[in-house]
């Protein structure tokens, strides 16, 4: 299925979870936050599966003033 991650389309297997996505981005265990279709995706929901067409944002803290 296709999901949109940080604005880019991505082909992923069915029953794909946030945990798997973070692993594949090299962000497993890193301090990030996620949004699923413009709603906060709490860490407790990371084992839940995405649906086709889901729009996901993965953000982190960077330098800023």
């Amino acid at each position: 299925m296709e999901i949109i991650v940080n604005g880019e389309a991505r082909q992923v297997p069915d029953e794909y979870t946030a945990e798997q996505l973070l692993e594949s981005l090299g962000l497993g265990g890193r301090r990030v936050a996620m949004e699923l279709n413009q709603e906060i995706l709490p860490r407790s929901n990371y084992p839940r599966c995405f649906s086709p067409g889901d729009r996901i944002e993965v953000v982190q803290a960077i330098g800023g003033g």
């Binding site: 953000v59 960077i62 003033g65």
Partner: peptide, 11 residues
Amino acid sequence: VTVAIRRTNIG
């Protein structure tokens, strides 16, 4: 200390 929130750089 202030920080900004941005997309992670994919890959």
